[in-house]
C-alpha cells in the first residue's frame, strides 16, 4: 500500500521555535473550543462518529483521478469535512488525520504539528465552512458553486499560511515561497474543488437529509460566514501583495520587531537583490490572482450545472 505525502506537511526542522510555539498556541485554543462544542452537540456518540469520519478523510485522500502527464488530482478534505460534519467536528477529525500522518507515516513533523494542524486542519475548515455557510439556503447550484470556490480558497489559505510561517522562520524568501506555493496549490486546489463539488452533489442526491436544515452542517452560527469571508479576503488580497511587494511586508514585520523575534538566526537582505523575482510586476500578479479566482469560479459553475442536468 502506497502512501503519498502531500506538499503541505511541514517536516521538523523547517520552522523556528517562536513560530511553531505561536502555531501551537492558536491550534490548542481552537481545539479546546472544538472539543467543548462537539462534546455538547454529540455526547457519547462523538467518539465512534468522529473516529470513523477521521478515517474517512484519511481514506478519501487516497482517492485520486488522473490528470495529464502522469500527475493526479486528490483531496486534502478540510472543506469537505467542514461542510458534511460541521466546523468543530471537522477540526477534530482533521487534527486526528494530521496527527496520524505525522506520528505513523512521518508525513509532517512532530514538533511542528501545531503548524500543520493550523494550516491543514483549522484554516481550511474556517474558510471552507464559512463561505459555504453563507450560501446554505440558496439553490443547489449556488451551494455547489460556492462549495467549489470555498474548497479552492481553503487550499490557498493553507498554502499561504505555510509560506508565511516558512518566511517568518527565516527558512524561505517571501518573494519566492509565496508565488511558488500558491502557484502549485492553485492547481492542487482545482482538483480539491472538483472532488468536493462532486462529493457534495452525490450526497445531496442520495442523502439530502445529511446536508439539510437540521443537519450538523447547518447548525453552526452565522459568525462562521464572517470569519470565512475575512480570511478569504485576506488570502485574495495578501497573496498578490506578498508576491508583488515582499519588501513592504518584510519592512512591516521588521518595524514591529516581529522578524527578529520570530527568527533564531539573523536574516538580512542583501543590498541590491541578486534574485529580483517579480521585480515590478505588481499589477500582473494582482491580475493573475483575479484570473485564477475567475477560472475556479467558472469551473465550479460548470461542474455545478453539469451535475444539475444529470439529476
Amino acid at each position: 500500500m502506497h502512501y503519498l505525502p502531500a506538499p503541505l506537511h511541514i517536516p521538523d526542522g523547517f520552522l523556528s521555535l517562536t513560530v511553531l510555539l505561536i502555531c501551537w498556541v492558536i491550534a490548542i485554543v481552537m481545539l479546546a473550543v472544538a472539543i467543548s462544542r462537539t462534546n455538547k452537540s454529540l455526547g457519547e456518540k462523538q467518539v465512534p462518529l468522529m473516529g470513523i469520519m477521521a478515517a474517512f478523510i484519511f481514506a478519501a485522500q487516497m482517492l485520486n483521478f488522473p490528470v495529464a502527464g502522469g500527475t493526479s488530482g486528490h483531496l486534502l478534505g478540510g472543506a469537505l469535512a467542514a461542510i458534511v460534519l460541521g466546523p468543530w467536528a471537522a477540526m477534530l477529525a482533521m487534527t486526528a488525520v494530521i496527527a496520524v500522518q505525522g506520528l505513523l507515516f512521518q508525513d509532517g513533523g512532530l514538533l511542528v504539528m501545531g503548524a500543520n494542524i493550523l494550516n491543514m486542519g483549522l484554516i481550511t475548515v474556517v474558510v471552507g465552512y464559512g463561505l459555504y455557510r453563507g450560501a446554505i439556503n440558496r439553490s443547489r447550484k449556488t451551494r455547489l458553486t460556492v462549495a467549489g470556490v470555498a474548497a479552492w480558497l481553503s487550499v490557498m489559505a493553507g498554502a499561504l499560511l505555510t509560506s508565511l510561517q516558512l518566511w517568518l522562520s527565516g527558512t524561505a524568501r517571501l518573494q519566492v515561497v509565496v508565488p511558488a506555493m500558491l502557484g502549485v496549490h492553485a492547481l492542487i486546489g482545482i482538483g480539491e474543488a472538483l472532488i468536493t463539488v462532486g462529493a457534495l452533489a452525490f450526497i445531496l442526491q442520495t442523502r439530502p437529509d445529511l446536508l439539510g436544515e437540521n443537519s450538523a452542517s447547518a447548525q453552526s452560527g452565522r459568525g462562521w460566514v464572517f470569519a470565512g469571508a475575512i480570511i478569504s479576503l485576506a488570502v485574495v488580497l495578501l497573496s498578490p501583495l506578498a508576491s508583488a511587494f515582499p519588501d513592504g511586508l518584510e519592512r512591516v514585520a521588521e518595524n514591529h520587531g516581529f522578524l527578529q523575534l520570530a527568527q533564531t538566526s539573523p536574516y538580512e537582505i542583501i543590498p541590491g537583490y541578486t534574485v529580483p523575482f517579480l521585480g515590478d510586476t505588481s499589477l500582473s500578479t494582482v491580475v493573475a490572482g483575479l484570473v485564477g479566482v475567475l477560472i475556479v469560479l467558472a469551473l465550479s459553475i460548470l461542474a455545478g450545472t453539469s451535475l444539475q442536468k444529470k439529476s
Binding site: A60, L63, N64, F65, G73, H74, L75, L80, G191, L194, I195, T196, V197, G198, A199, L200, A201, F202, A303, S306, L307
Partner: peptide, 8 residues
C-alpha cells in the same frame, strides 16, 4: 474529477 468526487 467528477467520478472521483462521486466516489468520495
Amino acid at each position: 474529477a467528477r467520478v472521483a468526487g462521486n466516489m468520495a
